[in-house]
Design a protein around this nucleic acid. Structure first.
Length: 283
DNA sequence: AATGTACCACCTCTTACCTCA
DNA sequence: GTTGAGGTAAGAGGTGGTACA
C-alpha cells in the first residue's frame, strides 16, 4: 500500500515542490492544478462579490480555469439533495453530478467530503447534548436516592432504639428488676461481650441477598454474602464498540451514529440508555 | 498462498480566503 | 475602514481496500 503518489509538478518546479497525489487528489493536467490553491500569494482568488454575481452564468465563462469559486446556490441545492439521498459517492454518480453541475468530479468529491465532515461535527454536538442530559438526569436520580437512603437510615435507627427500649422494659418486667437495675443489666450485657444487634443487621436478617446501600463513599451495593455488586472503582473506557460514538474504534463507519437514515445508519442498542452508558464501564 | 505495488476512495487536519456583524 | 469569527473549497498527508503481477 502506498500513501499517495509522487508526481513532479513541472509548473511549480522552481519552488522545488512535489505534488503528492492520492487517489482523490487534484487532477494533474500537465499544468498548474485546475483546482489547486498553489497560485501563489500574489494571485487573488476570485469569489463572488454580490449575490447577483452568483447567478450570472457569464461569470463562470469569463473566469480562468484555475480560479476557485464558490458554488452557486443551485449547485449547492442539488448537491445537498444528492447528499440526503446517499452520503457516499460512487464514481458513476460523481461523474453524473459533475456533468449536471458543470463541475469537475474532483470538486464534487471534495464537496461530499467536506459535507460529511460538517455533518459529523454536528452529529457529535448532538450526541454530546444527549449524553449530557442523560448524565444530568442520572445525577439527579442519584442525589434523590442518597436523600432517600439518609431518610430511611434515620428511620431505622429511631425505630431500633424504640425496639431496644421495649425489649429492656419487657426483660425487666419479667425478672422483677426495677428500672434502675435494668441499666445495670444492660451494662453487664456489654461487659459479657454479648453482641448487640445492629439496626442494619436487624433489617437485613433473613432477607437473603437484599441490598443495603452504604451511604458513605461511592454507590456501593452489598449483597448478603458481603460481596459488592460494584467493584471499588469504575472508570470511563471510552466508546464501546457498537455504541453511540464508536466510529473511531476500527476506522470504519460501522456502529456509528454520525449519519442519518440508511446512509447514516444508526445502530442503537435495544436499550438506548444502556448503550449511551456504554461510555462508562465499570471494571 | 503470500507479498509487493499501484490505484482509488475516504478521513482528519489545515490553509486560504470570503462574508458578515 | 478595520477586525475577528465563522463558513467553505481545496490541499496535505495518512489509512484501508482491491486488483494484479
Amino acid at each position: 500500500m502506498d500513501s499517495g503518489h509522487l508526481i513532479f509538478d513541472s509548473s511549480s518546479s522552481h519552488h522545488g515542490r512535489m505534488l503528492l497525489l492520492g487517489g482523490g487528489s487534484p487532477i494533474f493536467q500537465g499544468a498548474r492544478s485546475v483546482l489547486g490553491m498553489e497560485e501563489g500569494a500574489n494571485k487573488r482568488r476570485l469569489f463572488f462579490t454580490s449575490p447577483d454575481e452568483l447567478l450570472e452564468e457569464e461569470y463562470y465563462d469569463e473566469q480562468l480555469p484555475e480560479k476557485k469559486r464558490r458554488l452557486t446556490p443551485e449547485q449547492v441545492h442539488l448537491l445537498e439533495r444528492s447528499f440526503e439521498a446517499e452520503n457516499k459517492l460512487e464514481p458513476e454518480r460523481k461523474s453524473e453530478l459533475a456533468r449536471k453541475l458543470g463541475l469537475q468530479p474532483r470538486q464534487v468529491a471534495v464537496w461530499f467530503q467536506n459535507r460529511r465532515a460538517r455533518w459529523k461535527t454536528k452529529q457529535l454536538e448532538r450526541d454530546f447534548d444527549r449524553l449530557k442530559s442523560s448524565y444530568d438526569s442520572l445525577l439527579a436520580d442519584h442525589d434523590s436516592l442518597l436523600k432517600d437512603n439518609d431518610r430511611l437510615r434515620s428511620q431505622v435507627i429511631s425505630l431500633t432504639e424504640k425496639l431496644q427500649a421495649k425489649d429492656l422494659e419487657a426483660a425487666g418486667a419479667a425478672s422483677g428488676l426495677k428500672p434502675d437495675d435494668q441499666a445495670a443489666s444492660s451494662a453487664d450485657h456489654a461487659a459479657l461481650n454479648v453482641p448487640q444487634v445492629k439496626a442494619e443487621d436487624r433489617l437485613s436478617t433473613g432477607s437473603g441477598g437484599s441490598a443495603v446501600v452504604d451511604g458513605d463513599g461511592p454507590p456501593h451495593l452489598v449483597d448478603s454474602s458481603g460481596e459488592s455488586y460494584f467493584p471499588e472503582s469504575y472508570h470511563c473506557l471510552g466508546p464501546v464498540h457498537g455504541g453511540v460514538l464508536s466510529e473511531e474504534d476500527d476506522g470504519s463507519d460501522e456502529g456509528c451514529s454520525y449519519y442519518p437514515n440508511g446512509m447514516f445508519a444508526e445502530h442503537h442498542h435495544p436499550d438506548e440508555e444502556a448503550a449511551q452508558l456504554g461510555w462508562w464501564v465499570w471494571s
